[in-house]
């Protein structure tokens, strides 16, 4: 059995923070993979994948013409950059948390 592909194999991402809200944009390298990306990365899947971390709502915005998705995660930063005790208090590394999700094929 081969190792399952991960989102990282088909997409790149960047995370940003504003207060206690994180946003993560995810972009398909190849337009042909965008439908798969869109099917795999639903707001519901991200909320379910990390219930201990993303306790607030997750909203997905679609940028179809650029083959990208933008996830906005409320209450995701343990209070935000100034109150989180996480080493990564900005949640910068969340981009790679999403990219680490397996592709269900």
């Amino acid at each position: 059995m081969s190792t399952p592909r991960r989102i990282h194999d088909i997409a790149h991402a960047r995370a940003g923070d504003k207060g206690n809200t994180s946003n993560i944009s995810v972009w398909a390298y190849n337009p042909a993979d965008y439908p798969l990306l869109k099917q795999q990365l639903t707001a519901e899947r991200i909320r379910r994948a990390f219930p201990g971390l993303f306790t607030g709502g997750v909203t997905r915005y679609e940028m179809d013409h650029l083959y990208g998705l933008n996830f906005v995660l409320l209450d995701a930063l343990e209070g935000g950059v100034n109150t989180s005790l996480n080493l990564d208090s900005h949640g910068k590394s969340f981009s790679y948390l999403i990219l680490g999700l397996p592709i269900d094929e």
Partner: peptide, 13 residues
């Protein structure tokens, strides 16, 4: 790709 990543950096809607 560098422009796209920055396009939605700290952007919500």
């Amino acid at each position: 790709a560098t422009v796209k990543e920055q396009l939605l950096y700290e952007v919500h809607d």
